[in-house]
Amino acid sequence: RAAQGRAYGNLGNSHYLLGNFPKAVAFHKQRLAIAKEFGDKAAEKRAHSNLGNAHIFLGRFDVAAEYFRKALQLSRQLKDQAVEAQCCYSLGNTYTLLQDYEKAIDYHLKHLAIAQELGDRVGEGRACWSLEDAYMSLGNREQALYFAEKHLEISQEVGDQD
């Protein structure tokens, strides 16, 4: 049964990479059910993240946000800060797609704080870029400029010319 769970997860990921998102969702839901059966929180977290990702490409941003929120909750239970940062980043972007910029900013600031704590400059740069866009969407040019400058500084430091 445990191996069956892993197989479902792998099938879900394969379909996802092929762009077959409805099939990916179906397999990841099976994976999630088996993870719950075993009380395997790490696998449950993975299934939620994968389901969130697939729903982004299905255009179901509201559903994606729910899966990412659950993944965030589990990453906190698992005390995995890198994963927590990843979940916050996904939530920030998803709320931007939902045009809820205040919530997007809230999650991007959480992502930024963890990236700073972990010394992840690339993550910090991404967070600044996202905050720059979210503040611009809100018409807050002063804050947007602040994060644009930080983004530029970090991009130069990490050699990201793009």
Binding site: F61, Y89, N93
Partner: peptide, 26 residues
């Protein structure tokens, strides 16, 4: 409408490009 919106936000577009190849592996 949701799909059109994302085209306007560079940082989100970049995230989605990365996301296409991102799977949380078993």
């Amino acid at each position: 409408v949701q799909r059109m919106h994302l085209i306007q936000v560079d940082s989100v577009q970049r995230w989605m490009e990365d996301l296409k190849l991102m799977t949380d592996c078993e």
